[in-house]
Structures are given as C-alpha cells and as structure tokens.
Design a protein around this nucleic acid. Structure first.
Length: 875
RNA sequence: GGGCGGAUAGCUCAGCGGGAGAGCAUCGGCCUUACAAGCCGGGGGUCGCAGGUUCAAAUCCUGUUCCGCCUACCA
C-alpha cells in the first residue's frame, strides 16, 4: 500500500466499476422506498464551474447516503438545450466562416446545432462523472428529446385551450443584440449614472411651454400625449390644452392621470405608449395612439423623422443637440436610475411594443403559493419561502416567445387564407375554419425555461403514464442555488401542480453561491475563477468534495480558497494512512474467538454509536457542513488521536488472541467510519474498502451505519474520560515544561474515589504509552513529592516527578494561571447560586448542573492552592 | 422604494437563551516503528455599536452603523 494516497488512477478505476456494475441504476417499479432527485440540467454548452460542482456534490451526497439506507434511488440526469446560449455558440462558429444563420437557413442551421450538440454536448456530463456523480446515466434526457418535446407540446396546447396561454400586443423587453423578446426575469437591472433632461413642449394656442422631465429624450419622437396629475394646481388651467411635440411638431393632448407624481421633475410626464410599460398602460386608459420609433435592430425607424436609421444612443445625442439649438432644453440634472440589461449579452434592453405569446400565471401561481404554505413542499432554509411568496404574489404574465431558431417551435399555425390561429399537438394539414391547405407555423420558439419547467415529470416519461412517474413523482428533493428560484423552481411548482395534480418535489434545498477568497463572485472577466477540474487534478476529487460539503453552511456563501482544499487533502491522506496502519497489522486470518473488548474498543464503538446518529440527523436536515464537520472531528481527533494510539498496545501484543480481538474491532470501526464518509468521499473510501478483508461488494451498496447497530456503553465513555484526563494532564505538564517526548516520566496519581482508582489501575498501559510514562502508581491521598508538577483532573490529581528538571518558579506560574482560570468560572457560578431569583426561577436541572460544576471546581481549586502552598513552603 | 442576509480569535467561519468553539495561521517541543500531508502542547476574543426583555443574552426584541445580495413601472 503506497505511503500517500494517489487519487488519479483510483478515481478512474472505481467510477468505471460503479457505472459498469449498474450501481447507479434505479428500479421502476420496485418494492423499495423511492428517493428521487432530478438534476438541475446544465446547459449543453456548459462546462463544469464551481456552482455546478457544489450543486452536484450535495446531490451526490444525498443520493449515495439514501442508496446506502436502502432506498431505490433515482438521480435523474440530463441537459438543457439553452436556446439563446447555444444558438450564440453555433452562430459564432458560423461567423468564423463568414456566414450568418440567415445565409444557411433555418432548417440547415438547426441541423448544425444538433451536430454541435452531438459533438460537444456531453462534455459537462463527463465532468460530472469526474466529480463522482452517481446519476442513472441510462436515463439521461435532453430538453429537445422527442419525448420531452412531446411534453412541451402537450402543455402548450392544454394551457392554450384553458385560456392560460394567449397572444397579444404588449410592451416586452427586447434585446436588440439577441434580436429577441425576453421575460421580465431575464432582464438585469443595474444602477447607472444618467441624466434627467428637462424639455420644453410649447403650447399650441398660447404663449409659453410645458416642461417635462425624462431620462430618454429619444423616445419623445413616439410621444402621443403629456400627462399631469389631475390634482396638480399648477396645471389646473390646462384642461383640453395641447402642446407641440418638439422637432416633429406634432400636436399632443395634455391629459390628466393620477399615475403622475406631482413631486417628481416638473409634475408633467411625456407619454410614449410604444416604448414604456407605464406609458403603455396610461395610453390604454386614454386611448392614445402607439407610435413605435425604435426598431428591432435598436435603430430609429421611419417614424423617427430626421433620425430614421440612426442608432438609438446616437439619436439621443443628436436630439439633445437639436433641442438645445431650438432653446427647448431647459436643464440637465444628474440622476441615478436602474437600467435593464440582457442577462445573456449585457446589452441595454429596449422596452418595445410587440406581439408575443404569454402565459397567464396568476392562477398557476396561486396554487403554487398555497402548496408551500400548506407544507406540501418545504423550501429550506425556510427564509426562502418568504422570497418565493413575495415573488409569486406579485407575478406578472410570462412572455414565452423568442425570436430565435433553436428551441421548441411554438405549435401554432396561422392560416394564410383566413387568418385563423390553429394550436395543435399534431401539425395541421388544413385550416379548421376555411379548409385551405396553407397553415403556416409560427416562427418563434419557446423560452428555454418553458421546457425546464416540465423537467421533473417530462424526464420521467410524461405525458405517458410510465412506471417511472408512478414510482418517483413527486420527487424527493430539489437541490439548487437561489439564483434560479424564480426562473426554474417556481415555474416547476406551477407546472407540476397544474399537470400532475401534485407538487414536483417535497423539499427544495437552496444552497449558497461559491465565491472567491475575497467573497467576490467568480467571473471570467474578473479572472478570479477557480476551475473545479484543475482542483480535482491537483488535490483529488474527494478532498474537493469534502471541502465543498464542509463549507456549505446554510445561509452563507462559500468563500473558497485553494488552501482550504489543501487542508482537506491532508484529511484524505490521514484516512489513507489510518487504513495503512490497520492493513499492515492484518497478518492473521483466523477469526477472533470469544472477544473481550478493551476499554478503547468499547469506547470507540460507543462514540461511533453517537456519531452515526449525529451524521444521520445532519444529512436528513441538509446540514452538510455539520455532517462533514462531525466526521472530520471524530475521525481525526478521536478515532486516530486516541483510538488508534490506544489500539497499538493490542496490535503489538504477544498474545495472538488479543491481537485478533484488536484487529477485529479496528476493522469494524474503520469500516463503519468509511461508510459514514462514503457519501462525502466516494473514491478513497471505496479504494480502502476494497483492500479490507471480506469486502466483496462495493461500499456503495453496503448498509449506512445506524446508531442502533452499535452499542452505547455509557460506562466506557465515563471511564475513557478519566483516562483522557490523566493523559492530558501529564501531556500538559510535559508541554509546558518543555520536556522532550523521549524523556520517560514517573507519575503518581492521587485518586480519592475507588471507582476512578480502579479504572486507572486497570488501564495503566494506556497512560504509559500515551503520556510517555515509565512508572506510575495510583492510590488515595498520595503526598506530593518535593520535585514535581501536578495536574488536576476531576477529583483526581497527577503528580509528575521531575527530579532535577523542575523549575519551581515556572511551576508556580503554571499553577497560578490555572487557579485564575478556574476561579473566574467559580465566581460566575457562585454569583448564580447566591442570586435568590436564579434559585427561584431557573429550571431545576440548570441549578443542579451549576451546583455540580461548582463542587468539582471547588475540589480542583483546593488542590491547586494546596500545591501552590507546597511550593511556597519549600523556601 | 420594499425585502433578505452578514458583522464572533490574525484569516475563514460554526454556535443562535444556561460553562465562548473549529479549521487555517502563529508560538514552543518532537523525524515516537500509519501519516512531517504528521504528533504533543501553548497563546489569542468586553461575540459591530446603543438600549430593552429575562434569574440568565453572542444567542430574543428595538434602534443604529457598515458591508453584501435580491426585488421594484416615479419618468
């Protein structure tokens, strides 16, 4: 067995073995309890980043844990077709050959995207395998698969028939770069320094002008009114008045609408119904004309008069110039406002009047809110339920049509003869209404999130009534980041409830974001990304996974730095070496006969009993950091530091039956702790497992340890406490007196209670080996030797004989320090007990525990002080 | 504008009503035959600030400051 753990080969070997042995496969139907997680499908264009790594590590921990508990686990994998992103990639590819998608044509372009997908679409899935993900790859799905496309059509048609999908003219968010409409969610608002321009609109039939304030002067070309608040006394005489639109010299009515804020700007608002959502609504109530002056390419159009063909930003500058020349620009104020940008390409969004398809979400959202309120789905940590509620209750209709080619083409046809709109699951040959043979399909495709919203049931075979649906829906848990709570989780809730009549998952676990060491978001442009693949290459996958789990505290982002991963690599290596110790001492094949367990054996099994319970609780509650922390603490500082060290006596014993007993318990304990660690660290645990005797199967399919399988030996825990107290006390003295470990010590243990004395006397070997002691005597009331240092543990004290080694002043200092420490605590307890209100109001057990604590501190202080007096009397 | 989260040891963070914790870093002693990627020991904090509730507050409440995030149609 190599001295250090070498992850690379091991990882490849076992992953291949697990996959080929079908250990990731789920059964449908199955008599076992189901456990199902559908993966948040990564984009086909994606490659593994830290967010994926964390997200999938957590899912894999849950799946491996549940699988070991005997559940029929389905971790459903797949990828998302990622409409705009994928189209962009292939378009860039074309551009490098000097081509545009329009030149190759729609059908050919889609063919090219498919080719690209076949070639590169599996990259991220292979990277997930590298992470150790135990997905059932035989069930891999893609949102553009035949089956999932059928689900999309079914949903679209049914929602349309139910009146929940409609088509209409509204203000939508238009990205002039991507040349498509976007949903409100896909717009990122960013605070920017801009200006508030005060522009004079001269009155038509009187002197003077009305000044309006705007941040977007170029839209004035599309103004069809100016609005004031009906209660604004300044403008009370403007009833029926008209103003002249600058530059285009169009007369505009002055209208009154309560929407206008009297206090903002001049209290007069220019109304551009075709380019602003509020103006659009005001325009509706006042039946105003809608004039679109900016085209889909972001340039001014023919309604923009002299600015026709000009870019929207250039147009702004020119209009300001022209207004200034005409004396119509009153003033400019600096102003900060939030401006929408495309989440894909970061270009400025143009609110535009356009005919699009929408989902009427309010009725769907209502049920989705209720499902969470009633606890059919829990969102964890709970505070995200508030966020979810807030968003769902203020939800607006969802614009689902996109003017791109890659995606699910909307199943709507327009009859070229009579104009009828046909929405159908099967492509219609003839028009239902007029019978003509030329229905033409809608060009637009659906928002990618439309198909993602169906993912929890479409991947399981819906709309067919499959065994998978019966077995695994509703799924158990959804693990995801909060950044797609609205985009995805909320929409899955709505669709799941509507079409499956039940929520898509019982738990939604929202995890943190992975940031860099300074807490900044990782991004390519900042150059602060840590590449998970590189990390895995350098430190091993297990160290990486364990780091993520250990840092994944609920409600706080993860600040990741390489030195942390390095730290956990040391842990992996520690595990490796503990296994080496055990394996190097396994030269006897015989089974142990009648086993008499040592204290160390009894203790470690009892501690394992407790630890199993704690880890189980932690994982059941998605407290990954606690689970990892408990394993780390126990394995390193109890299993290795104490148990392995104590076992050495038995391992090197000349009595073969003691050796056999020791190795048997060592093996049992090691196997148990490996199983506990396996969900976190699948590779190293499997590698060690397979090297241990009597492990034919993979550790993956063994039973996760249960507390009830292990003894809880309270006396062992208590007795061990006494031994640890003695050893720690002696080590303390050694450390503080700077006595080298090679120097063997003589100690006298003064132990008043017979029970403790018996424990100590029966386990002198432990004290000898762990504390480096030569001779040791245990008795009641042993007088303190002249040259000695003393440590107090519980009611006992240990005198370390230090002939010629002791520095009396040093020892006095040490004792004084100790006295001070205890006295501080003692005082706090005294104060409590002398407080009548505490005695009266505090619960009985608290009062008791304070009394007990005080009594033990009193004994401790007494001894410490006696020791101090002893040294003083020497002079 | 509304909402959420954070502020605890030099750093990164647990703890969230009854004795201030971990990892890393630091200091001292050790190549003790699984591991120097290690072992043993030490030092280090009026738990952001100000009030309040309570017998008892890092923990609950109110206010406040500074960070971070989400959300929103005041042009």
């Amino acid at each position: 067995m190599p001295k250090g753990y070498e992850p690379q080969e091991v990882e490849k070997k076992w992953y291949k073995y697990w996959e080929e042995s079908g250990l990731f496969r789920a059964q449908a139907p199955s008599p076992d309890k189901p456990y199902c997680i559908v993966i948040p499908p990564p984009n086909v264009t994606g490659s593994l980043h830290m967010g994926h790594a964390l997200n999938n590590t957590l899912q894999d921990i849950l799946c491996r844990y549940k699988r070991m508990q005997g559940y029929n686990v389905l971790w459903q994998p797949g990828t998302d077709h990622a409409g705009i992103a994928t189209q962009n990639v292939v378009e860039r590819d074309l551009a490098s050959k000097g081509l545009t998608r329009h030149q190759v044509g729609r059908d050919k372009f889609i063919e090219l995207v498919w080719e690209w997908k076949e070639k590169y679409g599996g990259v991220i899935l292979n990277q997930l395998k590298r992470l150790g993900c135990s997905c059932d790859w035989s069930r891999e799905r893609f949102t553009m698969d035949e089956g999932l496309s059928r689900a999309v059509r079914e949903v679209f048609v049914r929602l349309y028939e139910e009146g929940l999908i409609y088509r209409g003219d509204y203000i939508i968010n238009w990205c002039p770069r991507c040349r498509t409409a976007l949903a409100d969610l896909e717009v990122e608002h960013e605070e920017m320094d801009s200006h508030l321009f005060y522009i004079r609109y001269p009155f038509q039939d009187r002197e003077g002008s009305l000044t309006v304030a705007t941040t977007r002067p170029e839209t004035l070309l599309g103004d069809t009114a100016v609005a004031v608040n009906p209660e604004d006394k300044r403008y009370a005489d403007l009833e029926g008045a008209k103003v002249i639109l600058p530059i285009l010299n169009r007369p505009l009515p002055v209208i009154r609408d309560r929407y206008v804020d009297k206090a903002f700007g001049t209290g007069a608002l220019k109304i551009t119904p075709a380019h602003d959502i509020n103006d659009f609504e005001i325009g509706n109530t006042h039946h105003l004309e809608r004039i679109r002056v900016i085209g889909e390419d972001g340039r001014m159009n023919e309604f923009a008069g002299p600015y026709n063909g000009m870019d929207r930003f250039e147009c702004r500058e020119r209009i300001l110039d022209d207004l200034k020349k005409a004396g119509l620009l009153e003033k400019i104020e600096p102003y900060r406002n939030a401006v929408g940008h495309c989440y894909r390409c970061k270009n400025m969004i143009e609110p535009l009047l356009s005919k699009q398809w929408f989902v009427k979400v309010a009725p769907l959202a209502e049920k989705a809110v209720r499902a969470v309120k009633e606890g059919q789905t829990r969102i964890l940590p709970r505070n995200w339920e508030l966020v979810y509620d807030e968003w769902m209750n203020n939800i607006k209709d969802w614009c689902i049509s996109r003017q791109i080619w890659w995606g699910h083409r909307i199943p709507a046809w327009y009859c070229e003869t009579c104009g009828e709109v046909l929405v159908a699951k099967e492509d219609p040959e003839i028009c239902d209404k007029c019978g003509s043979k030329n229905p033409v399909q809608e060009n637009d495709v659906l928002d990618t999130w439309f198909s993602s919203a169906l993912w929890p049931f479409s991947t399981l075979g819906w709309p067919d009534a499959t065994e998978e649906l019966k077995t695994f829906y509703p799924t158990t848990a959804m693990v995801t980041g909060f950044d797609i709570l609205f985009f995805w989780v909320a929409r899955m809730m709505m669709m799941g409830i509507h079409f499956m009549k039940d929520v898509p998952f019982r738990d939604v676990y929202i995890h943190a974001l992975v940031r860099d060491a300074q807490g900044k978001k990782m991004s390519k442009s900042k150059g602060n990304v840590i590449d998970p693949l590189q990390v895995m290459g350098r430190f091993g996958t297990d160290a990486f996974r364990f780091t993520l789990a250990a840092l994944a505290a609920q409600g706080r982002d993860i600040k990741l730095a390489e030195d942390k991963i390095e730290g956990y690599r040391h842990f992996v290596n520690k595990i490796w070496n503990s296994a080496r110790l055990v394996l190097m001492n396994l030269n006897e094949n015989e089974k142990p006969e009648e086993i008499e367990l040592s204290l160390a054996d009894r203790w470690v099994l009892s501690r394992l009993h407790q630890v199993c319970g704690e880890v189980t609780n932690a994982l059941d509650e998605y407290r990954f950091n606690d689970g990892a922390g408990i394993c780390y603490q126990f394995f390193w500082h109890e299993f290795c530091d104490w148990y392995l060290e104590m076992s050495k006596g038995g391992l090197y014993s000349s009595d073969p039956s003691i050796r056999r007993t020791t190795t048997a318990v060592l093996l049992k304990a090691l196997k148990t702790v490996l199983k506990l660690l396996h969900p976190f660290m699948p590779f190293v645990t499997e590698e060690i497992w397979q090297r241990l005797p009597e492990t034919e199967e993979s550790i993956m399919v063994t039973q996760f340890p249960e507390a009830s399988d292990l003894p809880c030996d309270e006396p062992a825990l208590r007795e061990m406490n006494v031994i640890m107290g003695a050893v720690t006390g002696i080590r303390n003295i050694r450390g503080e007196m700077n006595i080298p470990p090679a120097k063997k010590l003589d100690v006298l243990i003064d132990s008043p209670a017979a029970a403790d004395r018996a424990v100590l006397e029966n386990h002198l070997a432990y004290i000898r080996s762990l504390a480096g002691v030569e001779s040791v005597r245990v008795d009641s009331s042993i007088p303190k030797p002249e040259a000695s240092a003393t440590a107090v543990f519980g009611p006992n004290q240990v005198h370390v004989v230090l002939k010629g080694l002791i520095d009396f002043e040093e020892e006095k200092k040490r004792i004084k320090k100790e006295i001070k420490k205890v006295e501080k605590d003692y005082e706090i307890s005294t104060n409590k007990l002398s407080n009548p209100q505490f005695m009266e109001k505090a619960p009985e057990e608290i009062v008791e525990s304070v009394k007990e604590k005080m009594e033990s501190m009193r004994q401790q202080l007494e001894k410490l002080k006696r020791n101090l007096i002893f040294f003083d009397s020497l002079h």
